[in-house]
């Protein structure tokens, strides 16, 4: 009996913790929503068709059935978080969305991932153009061992942009969008590894933005960063969601609560619950979700 009660108390405290985060976020948003434009934007969003629809997605690594019957709609121009314990398949799921799993020889999948009405796994679909439309940011900052400029322009150059003015414009635009321009504009030809970890991760985001994607996938983008750098990236994610569809995988539930509008909870390869972030964290429908966000396992 006593054993049963204790976690429940803890759980209430936890839930309170989340609602504090969410409340703060709502207040922030309310201020912004006062702007009429934002309201209109908001209305438009709710009417929009989903950017990515996942239909009956199953995936295997060898004999290991890592993703099971996943059906999910990702809304356009908003942040969707995917949470779940380690090894639940959330990174694999994210990589399914831009066909990055194709590079693993023992990977198999079935089902559809529909981007703007077209299945990216169709025979006629071109993996290069899929990845051009769906950018990705990795767990560990992974800039190329090149200069800042070369890092950003790598994507545009391989996609055939040669005009120097255009390239300079892309360089500035991407770095500004990733909130890095002010810190590096006087040393664009410095080596990328001379930047701090957080700056490197923003450089990777800028590099992903340089090919003008529509969707940005982020695979635990802050797990290798300190709290200050994390806060900067989170602000950036919020900014990016005004223009891009952002899908972020995180094992940090506070982070999911802070940055996302929608949250999906993934457990052992299955979507347990998918809902608006506020709803999922404050009044989870499923027992497993509640157990996970209150820290009973994970």
């Amino acid at each position: 009996m006593v054993m049963e009660e204790l976690p429940v108390q803890g759980q209430k405290a936890e839930l309170k913790g989340f609602s504090a985060v969410l409340k703060e976020k709502r207040n922030l948003k309310n201020v912004e929503l006062m702007a009429e434009e934002s309201v209109r934007e908001e209305k438009k969003l709710t009417l929009q068709a989903p950017k990515i629809e996942v239909r009956d997605l199953n995936a295997w690594f060898g004999d290991n059935h890592v993703l099971q019957n996943i059906n999910l709609d990702f809304k356009a121009r908003t942040v969707t978080a995917i949470i779940g314990p380690s090894g639940c398949g959330k990174s694999t799921f994210l990589r399914c969305l831009n066909r990055m799993n194709d590079i693993y020889p023992d990977f198999r999948m079935a089902g559809e991932v529909i981007l703007d009405g077209e299945n990216i796994y169709d025979d006629g679909s071109d993996v290069v153009s899929v990845r051009k439309r769906i950018g990705m940011v990795f767990q560990k900052p992974n800039p190329f061992p090149k200069t800042i400029r070369e890092n950003i322009l790598f994507g545009p150059l391989i996609h055939g942009i040669r005009n120097k003015d255009k390239l300079d414009e892309i360089l500035e635009k991407s770095l500004k969008a990733a909130a890095l321009w002010d810190e590096v504009n006087d040393r664009l030809d410095d080596y990328a590894f001379d930047l701090s970890g957080g700056q490197q991760q923003r450089l990777c985001i800028a590099r992903a933005l340089a090919i003008e994607p529509e969707v940005i996938l982020m695979d635990e983008p802050c797990s290798a960063l300190d709290p200050t750098a994390t806060a900067k990236i989170e602000d950036l994610i919020y900014e990016l969601s005004k223009k891009y569809t952002v899908i972020i995988v995180t094992h940090n539930m506070q982070q999911a609560a802070r940055v996302s509008r929608w949250t999906a909870f993934l457990l052992t390869g299955e979507i347990i619950e998918y809902n608006a972030t506020e709803t999922l964290f404050e009044t989870p429908e499923r027992k497993e979700t509640e157990d996970y966000i209150t820290g009973r396992f994970g």
Partner: peptide
């Protein structure tokens, strides 16, 4: 991770080899 970063930017295998692997 360099190869993956390059592939994720839509580079083909050969572009990845020429642009990232060989310079590295």
């Amino acid at each position: 991770q360099y190869r993956r970063a390059s592939m994720a930017l839509g580079a083909t295998k050969w572009q990845t080899i020429r642009g990232v692997v060989l310079p590295t």
